[in-house]
Design a binder for these strands. Structure first.
Length: 588
RNA sequence: GCGCCCGUAGCUCAAUUGGAUAGAGCAUCGCCCUUCUAAGGCGAGGGUUGCAGGUUCGAACCCUGCCGGGUGCGCCA
């Protein structure tokens, strides 16, 4: 949705920046909005519309071709303030529209919609724009180079990554790509607890394996990790292996009594495993942040002291409490336990203060919805610090659970029971692109079912291949052209664009024109699945066109025009696939 | 019991955030390879958008109440 507030002519859509580029007609929506805005101003001068108006002009892409290429509901929204019936007002607006080379014609339909039909000149200009902007087509500079941090995955090093982490990785990384495409300077960050009770449990489990114990043994630690990977980890430690992860390095001492060494080794070992998983998934981080460093650097104590100084804490029952109810929580929370240790959200608050102090205008935390209760606490703690942090800071994107199906039955993911499907399993069985696509192609806040058998046995039916195939098909056309000793040059192609005469061709171009808006919305709303949906639609339209019209025809004008269109489609498919972290294969 | 998320075709999911006749993919059925790659295309069937009210020109979307699923509600992380 694009808004233009008539009152002060403030336009908050990101495309306005491009308006100064004379000679470019696109993107189309803001141009139409400008025309409508001028028409409204005229009607205000004429006294048809009241001079005081606070309405946002909405131009939408039509769902149905019969409704033109773009449409506005403006007359419906202004009917009441104008005291006119919508269709009559629509006619007045149409009459007041400035002449534009962009618009072929308009009509009034239904209850009072104004439909716009774009001119051939506009579609030709759009193809030109796609090709001139290349990899940057669809990008904008909304972020203006501001700093944004996206924290995602943030799995504790107690086991391999599972499919839930995979969803976080796929969604988080795509959000990063979208933010980069909209002008933000992105830091990808991975936060983990390397010193808590869970890590201690891990160390005890590994130690037990080092001592040759099994989970059936009486001396096996209560709630110990039982997975096979613990055995391999213990063997590696006893062999004296050196493990190197992105942020850790440690050599096993081979001494089963040295619990501290085992703990260090286990963390480094599992971090390395996670790194390999993430690398196989093509997800990379800029910063690995250790919870222990917050304690080492005194940042936890500093945050606590500040909360006390600000008067938001009190002692009760031997514990220190934070008055989170002052900030919308339903009950106050313990900060410091009777035993003197801090509860988990205290370092979390210190961590986010640190993020703020690092200068991130925005922070997006992508995490599992099962941790959503932390949101209120972290935000409350940040407000209580009185550090001028905005109320709704940071942003959260929560993904719902992934249910894994295999053999028609749900596979329970339990780290301690040791029965689960790792992310690596999926990548090996299903393929990286298909796995990423499945995890990123649906809204994060709905639960998803990942059927391994389906994804594996019918891999050729995976939707990602449908999109990638469209890309490969365009590449194939150009290979065929070369085989026939034909040639195509950008300048010839652009000059021939007036030969794109078919409705199917124009519709395809209009769809290409929607891409910048899709990217912008997906980025602003942190919803990569919108890009996936768009690509499906674009690929579908291209496949249909490909089947109905031959590109390499004898008429050189038509051939050049179609090759140029195909080239533009390929470009947009590639740009979109990149935003999802998927490859754009030239041959399939 | 309270908070948050979800409920759309047999299944998995969309629906440009309040727009026009709710759309795709699987699955089912019928067509199209001598033609740039059939991992493709064309066509058919399939719906009271969980239920009931309300708001307005207009609701899958917003409000209220139910029903059903998920997940949180520790001085665990």
């Amino acid at each position: 949705m694009t808004y233009l507030h008539l009152g002060n002519h403030f336009c908050d859509n990101p495309f306005q920046l491009n308006h100064s580029l004379s000679g470019h007609f696109f993107p189309m929506k803001p141009q139409i909005i400008e025309l409508l805005s001028a028409a409204v101003a005229t009607l205000q001068d004429d006294g048809v519309l009241p001079s005081e108006l606070s309405v946002s002009i909405q131009v939408e892409n039509t769902r149905d071709k019969a409704h033109g290429d773009l449409a506005t509901n403006l007359a419906l929204m202004l009917a009441k303030p104008a005291a006119k019936n919508p269709r009559e007002l629509a006619q007045l607006i149409v009459n007041a529209l400035p002449v534009s080379a962009l618009v072929e014609k308009t009509d009034i339909a239904g209850p009072g919609f104004i439909n716009f039909y774009l001119s051939d000149a506009s579609t030709q200009a759009l193809v030109t724009q796609v090709i001139e902007q290349g990899e940057r087509y669809g990008h904008n500079s909304t972020g203006a180079g501001r700093l944004v941090q996206v924290e995602f995955v943030s799995a504790n090093p107690t086991g391999p990554l599972h499919i839930g982490h995979g969803r976080g990785a796929a969604v988080g990384d795509s959000i990063c790509r979208l933010l980069e495409a909209t002008g933000w300077q992105v830091t990808r960050e991975f936060y983990y607890n390397d010193a808590g009770a869970q890590i201690n449990n891990l160390a005890l489990s590994v130690q037990a394996r080092c001592q040759g114990l099994t989970p059936d043994d009486e001396r096996w630690p209560e709630d110990g990790y039982r997975g096979e990977y613990i055995v391999e980890l213990a063997d590696s430690f006893m062999r004296g292996d050196t493990v190197q992860s992105e942020d850790q390095q440690f050599t096993g001492t081979g001494n089963a009594d040295d619990l501290e060494a085992i703990r260090h080794f286990a963390v480094a070992y599992l971090r390395r495993e996670q790194d390999l998983d993430l690398k196989a998934f093509d997800v990379n981080f800029d910063v690995y942040f250790l919870e222990s460093s917050l304690y080492d650097d005194g940042k936890v104590d500093a945050a606590v002291e500040r909360l006390i100084a600000n008067g938001y804490t009190y002692e009760d029952g031997g514990a220190l409490w934070l008055r989170t109810t002052d900030f919308g929580d339903d009950k106050d929370r313990v900060m410091r336990k009777k035993d003197g240790g801090y509860t988990y959200f205290v370092p979390d608050v210190a961590y986010h203060l640190d993020k703020w102090q690092r200068g991130f205008a925005r922070v997006v935390n992508e995490q599992g919805a099962d941790h959503h209760s932390t949101i209120t606490r972290v935000r409350a703690g940040l407000q209580a610090l009185q550090a001028d942090i905005p109320t709704g800071w940071p942003d959260y994107v929560l993904h719902q659970m992934v249910t894994v199906m295999r053999g028609g039955e749900e596979v329970k993911i339990s780290k301690r029971a040791g029965s689960y499907v790792t992310l690596r399993d999926l990548i090996d069985e299903v393929g990286r692109d298909a796995t990423r696509y499945f995890l990123v192609a649906r809204k994060a806040d709905s639960q998803l079912t990942f059927d391994i058998d389906l994804a594996r046995s019918q891999s050729s039916d995976n939707p990602v291949y449908y999109i990638q195939y469209a890309h490969a098909r365009v590449c194939s056309i150009f290979r065929k052209l070369a085989e026939q000793s034909g040639s195509w040059h950008v300048s010839d192609g652009l000059a021939a664009l007036s030969s794109l005469a078919l409705d199917a061709e124009k519709d395809l171009v209009v769809l290409l024109g929607r891409f910048p808006e899709v990217v912008n919305n997906a980025a602003a709303q942190h919803e990569p699945h919108q890009v996936a949906n768009y690509l499906r639609e674009l690929a579908g339209d291209f496949h249909t066109y490909y089947n109905s019209e031959k590109t390499l025809v004898d008429d050189s004008e038509v051939r050049n025009a179609r090759l140029t269109l195909a080239y533009a489609v390929r470009q947009v498919l590639a740009n979109g696939l990149t935003l999802l972290g998927l490859t754009a294969p030239e041959v399939m």
